[in-house]
Design a protein around this nucleic acid. Structure first.
Lengths: 387, 387
DNA sequence: CACATTATGAAAGCCTCTTACGAAAGTTTC
DNA sequence: GAAACTTTCGTAAGAGGCTTTCATAATGTG
């Protein structure tokens, strides 16, 4: 946790440490020469060379053709990180669809597939649809399952530490499913499961609106509103994986957002969400964007209600940035503008409130990032581990 | 941040690493023999010996007299961590008083002083009272300022990253004071400043009700209610140091708690807090403890109001535990019981809600712990640093 | 007082990193 | 087209650190 070693080490840990440092330097991209690399890691050239030959043997690094001469002197050998050495699979599973991405170790998406799902699908069918989508995506990328190094899946609900869906109200029958174990049967590598809003937050920090921002709250505005938080650049799950579920408090206005936007009123406790509420909500938002007064008023009203819940999260966590995404933001930024207007006056600091830039890809991409994080942790770990 | 090195190292980093590991093992307490220590850090005896002689030269470790024989064989040399090698100063400063602790590197309190302060005191006088209290506490411990390795202070309000009091409504004139710089003039060592509720959370995790719990929310129930959060065992300050200020949202019932308890109603925005509200609130709590119905009803009502704010934090962060402390809890655990009754139904997980066990010492002890954390970070850092 | 037991002290050997120097492979210049 | 120049490569020597090993020292037991 603290990075402070409990155990000392013999000279061999130096070798590992230097290997890791070299790999890390190469992961930055580019195709540095041996001497450039040696300077980067502050090691001597022979040592760097040794680390590189080990990494090459492990398939993580490759020597590339020397740059066709334009500089003086003997051409330098260049090396690059073999991003294609392994792959990560990111999956989104929700009530309406599943979305799968395959990415290489650099996070470049090399395949994907999306499939619409019926809301009423039983977990077993839902799972086999997911497996099918994964198969298709892998085929598109020309890969087999054995070339996957990690898999991550995002889904609505509270996910416990084992990857079981502890609470889920929006996908029928989903609660209680041990998603990590189920998917684990299909893949010969670690399988992680995480709440969808949490993953969206991860994605927006990776390559979205919150790039490199360390403290982020992501608000997933859909039928209900969920939220995910990154604290110090790391995902905050909470003790039982339930962090960000402020939506549970009725007076904070994050329940049945779409329904209220659509003017259906707050239903007491719908076992099955009504998809038409989503569509109706989107229509209202479109009308608001067109300037229709009644629609604007409705958006204003809902934003005012949601604002309290978001403000509660902002005041609790004091993030640098709030990202608003989810189905309700896909048709424009009316909602974000209204939320900004309502939330900012309630905050203490100059928190920025921005729209998601990844749209409906954020959960899937966040899953990719989570899987990559796991791979990197394994790769850059100092102790060799049982692999 | 990640503990992964960017730079490689020559054999000398091994030595530092092993020194650090040895020191860390000794910090655990006890007076191990050389061989016991070598086993602890998984190093050979000669290497451990080398690390020890370096640490001894730095004054951090000392050889103690061998345990008077009761075992067979040649008596083993024993070593111990010299907790008296350095000291930390922890300070609490609020509207009514200042409290100072001096502790050695093991956190053992070796001196302290508390002084009542007039609420209306100007910052300059308040500061000199604090300096006086520190001087008295140091004298009691038989130490000079130069033997302090770090100082930390806790005070109400939002503290920015530089140790300036960005927002403070409860101590007149306090807002805008650059507390870290002011105190820095008096001490030849790092000076840290932190929000009081944050420090109370740190203290309760250190040696209070939340020992070794990683995700904790501390609710400081005083005139207003502040909160501090520990996430993953680390203090979460937020981007602008304003994390935990849920009390700002009026509908969450964490403003003017004492005033409402005392039946004074919610004052719109008191420039100066009224100390009699505190006292009246305590009387109500005592009456409630005695079972007086009217008082019980009042407590119940306030707890119900506060519960929403606390629940908002719990739902946002999903902590393992909520600690309730502050002036309102000193007279008994009525408030805690009522809060537990009101908050738990609103939560998703089995969050524990407990009373502070450190009482009005928590902020000062948290300051000690924060200073010690800083010292440890410096001590256990691998790179030598400019010290 | 000898013996068993445990710890210390010092030397030998191994691993890894750094420095140093000559050879190699290009480009530029004449 | 060859010599000069420049930069990199390959390898050997040297230094720092850790481990193993064996003889020695100090203490309790019979």
């Amino acid at each position: 946790m603290t990075g402070i070693p409990l155990h000392g080490g013999d000279p061999s840990v130096l070798r590992r440490l230097n290997s890791v440092a070299t790999l890390r330097a190469l992961r930055g991209g580019g195709e540095p020469t041996l001497t450039e690399l040696a300077n980067l890691v502050s090691l001597s050239r022979p040592t760097t060379e040794g680390a590189l030959s080990e990494l090459t043997a492990r398939g993580l690094v490759e020597e590339v053709a020397p740059e066709a001469g334009r500089r003086l002197g003997r051409p330098a050998r260049r090396y690059r990180f073999r991003a294609e050495a392994g792959h990560a699979l990111g999956v989104e599973i929700n009530a309406h669809r599943t979305l799968v991405y395959v990415a290489d170790l650099d996070g470049r998406v090399v395949g994907g597939h999306r499939a619409d799902l019926d809301v009423g699908l039983a977990p077993r069918e839902r799972l086999s649809a997911v497996r099918g989508a994964a198969r298709t995506a892998l085929a598109e990328a020309g890969l087999t399952r054995s070339e996957l190094w990690a898999v991550a899946a995002g889904t609505p609900g509270v996910i416990d530490a084992d990857g079981r869906i502890a609470i889920c109200t929006v996908v029928p029958g989903w609660q209680g499913v041990h998603l990590a174990r189920e998917l684990g049967r299909s893949f010969p590598c670690p399988v992680l499961v995480e709440n969808d809003a949490n993953l969206a937050a991860v994605a927006e920090r990776w390559r979205g609106a919150a790039e490199n921002v360390d403290d982020v709250v992501y608000v997933l505005a859909g039928l209900h509103t969920g939220a995910g938080a990154l604290i110090g650049g790391r995902l905050h799950r909470g003790r039982w994986g339930a962090a960000g579920e402020v939506g549970t408090l009725p007076e904070l206005g994050l329940r049945d957002t779409a329904a209220e936007l659509a003017g259906l009123g707050t239903s007491p406790g719908p076992e099955r969400p009504e998809p038409q509420a989503d569509r109706a909500a989107e229509e209202i938002l479109a009308a608001a964007r067109a300037g229709e007064p009644a629609a604007l008023a409705r958006v204003d009203q809902v934003a005012g209600r949601m604002a309290r819940g978001i403000a509660a999260m902002v005041l609790a966590l004091d993030p640098e940035m709030v990202i608003v995404g989810g189905a309700l933001t896909l048709t424009g930024d009316v909602l974000v503008r209204e939320l900004r207007r309502h939330v900012l006056p309630l905050c203490l600091g100059p928190t920025r409130i921005e729209a998601s830039t990844l749209g409906d890809e954020s959960v899937g991409l966040g899953a990719v990032r989570l899987a990559l994080d796991r791979i990197e942790a394994d790769l850059l770990r100092l102790d060799p581990g049982p692999s």
